[in-house]
């Protein structure tokens, strides 16, 4: 695990961060968890992440705004959207605005891991699923 993936995870549901942080750490991700979108935006301005995972429906600032902020700030960062309000129109909007992928809640940790793996591949690094001890790579 020489080059860790820097991941920012933003969801106003605390449990999401709490559970996903260890799940992603297993595949070699260094995860920073945020519940407040404003704090997350500040952090994104400070640091370039490899991957940003963000919820869409949040108070104040929504995920699409976060996506726009990230693509403007750091074009190489892959943004993965997760939402409970998945609809075709929203999915297309997110993709059109440059999201890497779009996942509907509820999802399994592996769903996100797979997407992160393909994002890592697109970034030129690779993720070793077997190292994390997960059976279905």
């Amino acid at each position: 695990m020489t080059d860790q993936l820097e991941v920012l995870l933003l969801d106003d549901e605390p449990i999401v961060g709490k559970r996903l942080k260890p799940a992603l750490a297993k595949i070699g991700c260094n995860v920073e968890v945020f519940e407040n979108p404003r704090a997350a935006l500040d952090r994104i301005s400070e640091k370039e992440f490899d991957i940003v995972v963000t919820d869409i429906r949040m108070d104040e600032i929504d995920g699409i705004q976060v996506l726009e902020h990230v693509t403007q700030k750091s074009p190489r960062t892959k943004v993965i959207m997760i939402t409970g309000y998945a609809m075709m129109s929203l999915a297309r909007e997110a993709m059109g605005k440059g999201a890497f992928d779009f996942i509907a809640k509820p999802f399994q940790p592996d769903d996100l891991r797979k997407v992160i793996a393909s994002a890592a591949k697109a970034l030129g690094s690779s993720i070793d699923f077997t190292a994390a001890g997960i059976d279905n790579a």
Binding site: R92, M95, G96, G98, D101, F102, I103, K114, V115
Partner: peptide
């Protein structure tokens, strides 16, 4: 060719 019509986790699931 627009990104909007690219497959993704959610649409593949659908």
């Amino acid at each position: 060719c627009s990104r909007k019509f690219q497959p993704m986790n959610y649409s593949e699931k659908c």
